[in-house]
Amino acid sequence: MVVDRLNGWLRRIPVWAVYLALSLPPPILLYMGLTGGLGVEPIEALEHELGERGLQLLIVGLAITPMRRYLGLNLIKFRRAIGVMTFVYISLHLLVWLVLDVQILNEIWADILKRPYITIGMLAFVLMIPLAATSNNWSVRRLGSKWRTLHKLVYGIAILGALHFVLLVKGFQIEPLIYMAIILGLLALRFPKKRRRVVA
């Protein structure tokens, strides 16, 4: 079957290759930003690129379980790499916002408190910290069953991330709503199956 062949092929890809591939875009984007490749307003372009790619990686991470469950496609061994790199992208997105975009310390603080889309984005980032910090074998062993519960935080993080995007755009725009729909869809796929399992 196609899926089996695909799984066999995926088994041969080392995890470090995923880390490497996902590490390339940020420095390339930075270089483009410095040399005019991101247009006449590179700060906004870099910030948005990193944020959107972070959100896309979050979606890839959330798709791994449903893909295995419904399609038999096994990407589990890459899940940690994708999760850690999501955190890296969102951290860089935040760093660009702090250092290159807002720049001024009291404006940063005012933005976090007063602008709902920034409050929500910030909250999502803070919630990612414990997940990134426990994305290692030692923590998995140490936390046992609590580790799984803790990492369910990613469901809330994904919704907050999409909401951050929905709220920040002006006018009624479709793109952020598509992200939100995909995330809600991927989360919805997890719950009915569990119930069916209990019945079976």
């Binding site: 930075l30 005012a110 007063k114």
Partner: peptide, 18 residues
């Protein structure tokens, strides 16, 4: 509500524009 209007970014300053 979305942006502080106290300061602005002049287009053309590149990635390190103040």
């Amino acid at each position: 509500p979305r942006w502080s209007q106290a300061s602005e970014k002049r287009i053309g300053g590149g990635l390190l524009a103040r």
